[in-house]
Structures are given as structure tokens and as C-alpha cells.
């Protein structure tokens, strides 16, 4: 019962944070949207910042399980990247409010929220580093490659989400897949890996 009510508050909070922005949202707004008493709200969260953190935690967990489940279906590293990326972009396209909270509003939520956001990007960057294992000996990559790739993608998604272009996000699969894979595989192999996945995952979606 309590769990259920807490989950309902988070659902309402995600919608309202995404729609009016975290900085402009008050506890009163959250309470009204979730249709609960102020007392109950403070029973769950110490304030709106804790509420944002809990919402982000839930969203990031969900997005991560989408990626992990998708990647586990792939046999090679490039396939795993394609599957994970494709499903993640589809998920973002289907859940633009949640994505906005975890990629955009999170950055306005103070030190703890920003740390959580940066930790998420770092986790994603670490996951891409596996691409180095199969690198030809003569290919040297900058140390910061994965971090910059992830930062660039995060910014692009931020941009699309804040410009109200979230439906276009799944269509970024080909370009972003190539951007991620090319440094490890070279242009030709990266294009081939993408082509194996593009039709199933994205045409007409």
C-alpha cells in the first residue's frame, strides 16, 4: 500500500518535473498532482530534491535494464552495442517525460543530483570501453574517447528533448551507432554492424 502510494507520487512527480521543470516545481505542486496529503509526501521524501533523486533512480534503473536485456541478446560486442543503443533510443522515444527528468531536469537538482547524472554517464562510458579489447594493435585511441562520446550523445538527447523533438530520437540509431563504433571498427565494419540491426529495430518505428 505504502509502496504503491510512493510509486504513484513518483509517477506524478516525473510528469510534473518534465512538464514545468524541476526548478519551478514546488512541494505543493507535487502533492496536488499526486493527490496525497503534505504529511504523506514528507513521509516518503524529505523534500522535492529527494523526490527528484528517487524519480531519477527509478528511471535510470529502468533504462539500464532495458539496455542490459537488449545487449544480452547479442553475441558480439558490436551487436550488443547496437541492440542496447537501439532499444535505449526507442525507450526514450516512448518515455520522453522520464528521459527528460533523468537527462535534463536532473542537472538542475543540486549537487547530489548532478553527481548521480555524472555517475550514469561514467557507467555508460565504462561499458563502451570493452570495444578496446578487440582493437588492432596499431590503432591508438584517446583516453577520453568514451567519455567524450557519451557526453556528446547526452547533449544531443538533451537538445532533442528540450526542443520537443523526442519522436525523432529513435531515428538517431544509425548515426549514433556509427559514431560509437567507428573508432574501434573503422568505417566499413561499423556501417555493416549498424546495417544488421537498422531494419529490424527502426524502419517505420
Amino acid at each position: 500500500m505504502e509502496e504503491h502510494q510512493r510509486a504513484r507520487v513518483l509517477d506524478a512527480a516525473i510528469t510534473i518535473f518534465a512538464e514545468q521543470g524541476y526548478p519551478a516545481t514546488t512541494v505543493d505542486d507535487l502533492v496536488a498532482a499526486a493527490k496525497i496529503g503534505v504529511g504523506s509526501f514528507y513521509g516518503f521524501f524529505s523534500g522535492k530534491e529527494q523526490c527528484l533523486l528517487a524519480a531519477c533512480e527509478r528511471i535510470i534503473d529502468e533504462a539500464r535494464s532495458v539496455v542490459v536485456a537488449a545487449a544480452s541478446e547479442g553475441t558480439s560486442w558490436p551487436d550488443q552495442v547496437c541492440l542496447g543503443l537501439g532499444r535505449l533510443l526507442n525507450w526514450i522515444g516512448a518515455e520522453p517525460l522520464a528521459a527528460r527528468v533523468a537527462l535534463v531536469e536532473i542537472q538542475t537538482g543540486g549537487a547530489e543530483a548532478i553527481a548521480r547524472y555524472e555517475e550514469t554517464l561514467t557507467t555508460a562510458a565504462r561499458a563502451l570501453e570493452r570495444g578496446r579489447e578487440s582493437l588492432p594493435r596499431d590503432r591508438r585511441l584517446p583516453d577520453s574517447l568514451e567519455e567524450t562520446t557519451v557526453n556528446g550523445i547526452a547533449w544531443l538527447l538533451h537538445r532533442r528533448l528540450t526542443m520537443g523533438e523526442s519522436e525523432s530520437i529513435p531515428q538517431l540509431f544509425g548515426e549514433l551507432g556509427e559514431m560509437i563504433l567507428e573508432p574501434y571498427l573503422g568505417e566499413a565494419r561499423a556501417t555493416k554492424a549498424i546495417a544488421r540491426h537498422a531494419p529490424i529495430e527502426h524502419r517505420g518505428s
Binding site: 556528446g152 550523445i153 544531443l156 549514433l176
Partner: peptide, 9 residues
């Protein structure tokens, strides 16, 4: 856009 976002990062 991703490129310039990465650069700024």
C-alpha cells in the same frame, strides 16, 4: 550537435 556537445564537455 553531438560533436560540439562533446567538445564543450
Amino acid at each position: 550537435h553531438a560533436l560540439v556537445g562533446a567538445l564543450v564537455g
